[in-house]
């Protein structure tokens, strides 16, 4: 079973992502903030991580750095799922090390397209 870790402080967005991915056969784990996500990913590295950018405590970029700093998480796909969609935001995200940068509003179709 493929495992995905979702870090987002919005319960409704976690539910949306959980629903879509569970239907695709993923085992979904959830964290409400970045630090929890780092702890969970360190304990058991998942196959995919979806990170919100704006989160309390460590934001998506800090969380990404903490995750990428670990050898086991260096190369796994980490997606940004974010409402930051101004000019230059995506380039910044990709430059920071996100595998993909998906802007909200995100539809099921766009997410699935990004996963394939």
């Amino acid at each position: 079973m493929r495992r995905v870790l979702i870090a987002d402080d919005s319960p409704s967005n976690r539910e949306f992502l959980r629903t879509v991915l569970a239907h695709e056969g993923w085992t979904v784990e959830e964290a409400g903030d970045g630090l929890t996500a780092v702890a969970m990913a360190t304990a058991a590295p998942p196959d995919l991580i979806l990170l919100d950018i704006q989160m309390p405590g460590a934001d998506g970029y800090e969380t990404l750095r903490a995750l990428r700093a670990q050898a086991a998480l260096e190369t796994i796909p980490i997606f940004a799922i974010t409402a930051y969609a101004m000019d230059g935001d995506e380039q910044r995200g990709l430059a920071a090390g996100f595998t993909a940068y998906l802007t909200k509003p995100l539809t099921r179709r766009r997410l699935l397209a990004a996963l394939s």
Partner: peptide
């Protein structure tokens, strides 16, 4: 930038879940 962010976030919930309903997931 912040207006864009604040409007997109709730819209994401509306659009995302509506799609799930329409797709009868």
């Amino acid at each position: 930038a912040s207006m864009s962010h604040e409007l997109r976030s709730p819209l994401h919930t509306i659009i995302g879940f509506t799609e799930l309903l329409v797709d009868e997931l």
